[in-house]
Design a protein around this nucleic acid. Structure first.
Length: 420
RNA sequence: GUGAGCGUAGCUCAGCUGGUGGUAGCACCGGGUUGUGGCCUCGGAGGUCGUGGGUUCAAGUCCCAUCGCUCACCCCA
């Protein structure tokens, strides 16, 4: 039996890594423009952390976590909880009133894999802690939008408000009693959801449930004054930044800690997975984890989903370039070539060579495959005459290159020639 | 956890109602160019047809089981 990777765990192969790097670089660079600082937190935490933050009754906690039960530890299913734990543990709020943090890394959820959905997946994650101003909500959303723009992706943005501890519970009760009246019309799943997660019924895809959802009381109309004006100002803020969005009062979250503003960046091109990024405000979370009563807002984007979208748009696939390839021919050439190539590499060039002693044709092919700009051919006759042949692969022009002097001197003159 | 579909070369796939595994494409190696890549051309190498049973004179093809993968539901990035 062949050993293969675990279902839902994927290799990211060299051909894909340039795209991945581009995504991660673009995001990190945009994050930094917004004053975000990178943080790395462990891949494992005490199980309790996720139970308390994400919520005991959520699907993630109930059935999707990779937990070592005897150790009471869990592979992180998302980043926010871990970052908030680190924030509290290191007393980060004393250093700065507002902390702006980002992280990039793998997350783990034991779900059935499908398109755009894996058991180990990777997220770009941004968190702003300590600011309640609605302008910050708008700024954070704008930051996510800018990353997508700079990656050349067109997604749509939907926003909603889930209210706060004041206005959500009464609304929830109101919604439950409404749903109970409609019980007969609801699908099986939604009957179950009515008490477990009534807001989720609003997001059901079944037509019967959709009809009921449209008749259901709207949370947006039941928001308390604070939430209502906050949400209005978030929308004003987005308008001011010229970020287009649509209001989706049916949008819900699968994690318990969200309050007020929530949003999703959506695409139609990922099969059943519509969201490439999503986030929201979590004003009670830090306090709930035993920290100071500070508000927070954040989002996460799925790197695999971004990469899938970018591959689908794929113009030219990205390729790793090589500055110079040394073709060593005959018995004598490999020795001086290996000294020269090491010097070239010390001097910062991307240099490659082949030690197999294959034919020049084969080595030229190899040079072409690694996208070499130049090839330096060194065979017995070149060694004898102390003149290598330097070929420009694009223009096909060749010139002789003196093999005299130390490797350092040869490297320096090659550097000069290649800059031209 | 539920449902459907699919496992043939490194990859993408042909293979009809069972009758010798494809001159298939990409990739790889070599020749055409006595030491010059990409294009072209000729040749070469590469397979326990996922695995195990069964039916049959004969199974890649039919049946059963099993493993794996994919997509969808659920849920989510």
């Amino acid at each position: 039996m062949k050993i293969q990777a675990i279902n839902g765990f994927k290799d990211i192969l060299p051909d894909q890594m340039l795209l991945w790097r581009r995504i991660e670089h673009t995001a990190a660079e945009v994050f930094q423009r917004f004053g975000m600082r990178e943080i790395r937190v462990p891949l494992m935490e005490k199980t309790e952390l996720f139970v308390r933050s994400i919520g005991e009754a959520t699907d993630v906690v109930e059935k999707e976590m990779y937990t070592f039960s005897e150790k009471k530890t869990t592979m992180r299913p998302e980043a926010t909880a871990s970052i908030m734990r680190a924030f509290i543990e290191h007393g980060m709020h004393v250093q700065q009133p507002v902390q702006r943090l980002f992280t990039i890394g793998p997350m783990f959820r034991h779900e059935r894999p499908q398109k755009g959905r894996l058991r180990q997946f990777h997220q770009l994650d941004a968190e702003i802690v300590g600011a309640t101003e609605p302008q910050v909500d708008a700024e954070l959303i704008a930051m996510g939008q800018l990353i997508l723009d700079e990656l050349g992706l067109s997604t749509s943005l939907e926003i909603n408000s889930l209210g706060c501890q004041e206005c959500r519970p009464p609304y929830r009760r109101k919604l439950i009693s409404f749903l109970e009246e409609q019980r007969e019309e609801l699908c099986e799943d939604c009957r179950r959801r009515t008490h477990k997660n009534p807001l989720r019924v609003l997001d059901c895809k079944k037509t019967a449930c959709k009809t009921i959802a449209h008749q259901a009381p709207s949370l947006l109309e039941d928001l308390c004054e604070g939430c209502s004006s906050h949400f209005a100002q978030v929308q004003e803020g987005l308008d001011a930044l010229e970020i287009p969005f649509t209001l989706n009062r049916f949008m819900v979250r699968g994690l318990d800690y969200y309050t007020q503003t929530t949003f999703e960046f959506l695409t139609a091109d990922l099969g059943a997975q519509a969201a490439v990024g999503a986030g929201g405000r979590y004003d009670g979370l830090i306090e709930q984890l035993g920290g100071p009563a500070l508000p927070g807002i954040g989002f996460a984007m799925g790197i695999e989903r971004l990469a899938l979208l970018m591959e689908q748009n794929a113009e030219e696939p990205l390729e790793q370039q090589t500055d110079i390839f040394l073709a060593a021919l005959g018995e004598q050439a490999p020795q001086p070539c290996s000294r020269l190539i090491h010097q070239l590499r010390k001097d910062g060039l991307k240099a490659a060579m082949d030690y197999s002693g294959r034919s020049l044709k084969a080595q030229m092919k190899q040079a072409n495959r690694c996208h070499a700009r130049f090839v330096l051919i060194i065979g017995d006759s070149e060694l004898e005459q102390q003149q290598g042949v330097l070929r420009n692969m694009q223009s096909q022009e060749q010139q002789s290159f003196p093999l005299t002097g130390s490797p350092q001197e040869q490297s320096q003159s090659l550097l000069r020639l290649l800059q031209l």
